[in-house]
Design a protein around this nucleic acid. Structure first.
Lengths: 345, 345
DNA sequence: GTGAAAGCGCTAACAC
DNA sequence: GTGTTAGCGCTTTCAC
């Protein structure tokens, strides 16, 4: 790998001058500039991001922390964040905690040690230690949460309205005539996505339907737990639900899988709905009713906040709640098609 | 962020000594060591990966280049590579070319500029320029291809036997009595996965079945193209196929989607099979017959080669072809269940 | 067992 | 417009 020194030598100038044409930090004689460009080209020079970061404490990189590489929600996020970030001349650096509870912070530190210029945080849990650490970090660099956290301090956050989202989904079930509506909730000990649980309860209460503890199952965000939830509801619960609302699509898919394995049909025997609208949901049979998170828009908004904060470090933190959208499909509505119309390019 | 200097000052020693306990490069008095550990702890010190990389030209990082963040195949890969790499004390840094044909090399350069210690390359295309660049890079650091490339030079590569894989899938269709078997192939201009096409043709020839050009559709690896392929086969081709073999599961899923939208059933009206065994395939209705790539094993093998090459830079390059496995499911076999039994944790 | 000093590749004063 | 110099945080001779 050629260094800036090599380029300087080749072009017969000082490294400073090379740096100047590289960064446009000061005017350079057009002739010299050409010579330098020439040298850069023949040497196939490209500046070391590490050395640059070393000096400037910047790396033109946005770190993205997710809990899990296998969740489709994050793939879509990656794609859109990367797209947005690239347009701004930045790179994306992803890291997954693989849900290793013990030390979420060390992954964040890893990002920091790579001199990322900011961090987008997605989390299943939102543990106190992590939040504290991130809050401290936020004094140094932009930190944007992509989840709903009930935090007193000022933070940047982008999220959809999980409370009203699930409330709407639940209300949709109620409108369909369901009374025994089960809910697959996120882990109790994590505060993330708790608002979805609240949305479920409130929708029930508004309709004067009892919230039956037996019809609440604690999932863990994975397909398997949705499967287990449905199994529990259909084989163990004393009151059999006629509808299942899941806090996430992935768990809803697990539930759908179990229900199909029992030879039951949706929505006739039991209705199922999720939250997220990951792209698999509409490919399933039946296609799954869900509450669409506008992932592209979320990603773009988060990146905008990041960029703005980079350029205006003293800018106020922003919480942006984006509107989601109920997507009614066959899993709850027999009038919808067995195969979802998909807009193909 | 505390630096090594801060730690040294706090512990009343030189930075050299701190570095020594950090890296265990030389014996340090147990008492001094304790003081230093103490300081590291209170200052929450953690070395800058950039500065380290600067000096050592290493970063304890393995770069992974993929063409597309939305393909489930790569998510599984990410997960397993990350797992394997972490065990060795390394990090994974992913980058996606988002299929921007123009300049695949710049993404690789980006990885290099971050001082990655090696690169795992997945590609849809395998353009000549990219290969040339990577071959050159391979002189400097471990480069491992996770695709089958028909390259004369010595390279590291891990892949499944696409030729025999698709041959087996096609033969499976033939055994089921199909004669007009269509094939969704990868883009002609990309040399990657061409072996799968060869496998299809040879399987047909072995069975003395004609390879009908009209039943070959050129896909682009995306769901949409599988949908388009099926649409073409069923509405435009003069000879209607009774079976479709797809070079990838994702395209097979697109085909399944179109077929279902026509109210046709699989495998009765038409049989469909793919290649990869991404986790969605078995969740589909019907579950899709496919040829399983042992992704976890591929990831582990690639990481092993990487680590070995790091420790023995002069080690020979290795090509590892892993055995895949035909997974017969309902989309080709009416005796299989409508819902695939999935092993839940 | 420990420290001083050089230097990795780069940028940013500061001179000229 | 251009070059000299210092220094980012770290590791690594080379002394002691």
């Amino acid at each position: 790998m050629a260094t800036i020194k090599d380029v300087a030598k080749q072009a017969g100038v000082s490294v400073t001058t090379v740096s100047r044409v590289l960064n446009g930090t000061a005017p350079v004689n057009i002739k010299t500039k050409e010579k330098i460009m020439q040298a850069i080209d023949t040497l196939q020079y490209s500046p070391s991001i590490m050395a640059q970061g070393m000096r400037t404490k910047k790396s033109k990189t946005l770190g993205v922390l997710v809990p899990d590489y296998m969740n489709p929600f994050y793939h879509e996020l990656f794609k859109y964040i990367e797209d947005a970030v690239r347009q701004e001349g930045y790179h994306m650096l992803t890291i997954s905690t693989q849900e290793e509870v013990e030390d979420e912070n060390s992954y964040i530190t890893d990002l920091v040690n790579r001199n990322v210029d900011g961090i987008i945080v997605c989390s299943y849990k939102g543990e106190k230690e992590t939040i504290t650490y991130l809050l401290q970090l936020a004094k140094t660099m932009p930190v944007i949460f992509l989840d709903h956290f009930d935090i007193k301090q000022s933070i940047n956050a982008v999220f959809t309205d999980g409370y009203n989202g699930i409330k709407e989904v639940t209300k949709h079930m109620i409108d369909k005539g369901h009374k025994n509506i089960a809910f697959i909730r996120p882990p109790v000990r994590y505060q993330v996505a708790n608002d979805r649980y609240e949305g479920y309860k409130d929708a029930m209460q508004v309709a004067r339907l009892p919230v039956n503890e037996e019809l609440i199952y604690e999932g863990n965000y994975h397909i398997e737990s949705g499967y287990a939830a449905a199994k529990y509801f259909l084989t163990q619960a004393k009151v059999k639900p006629t509808a299942i609302v899941s806090a996430t699509d992935l768990m809803a898919i697990g539930a759908v899988n179990f229900i199909k394995s029992q030879g039951l049909s949706m929505p006739e025997d039991i209705a199922v709905a999720g939250y997220d609208d990951i792209y698999i949901s509409k490919l399933m049979t039946p296609p799954i009713t869900t509450y669409r998170q506008p992932i592209a828009q979320m990603a773009q908004t988060a990146v905008q906040i990041f960029i703005h904060k980079i350029n205006h470090p003293t800018a106020n933190n922003r919480q942006v709640m984006l509107a989601g959208h109920l997507m009614v499909r066959r899993s709850t509505d027999r009038d919808k098609p067995q195969v979802e119309k998909i807009v193909y390019k």
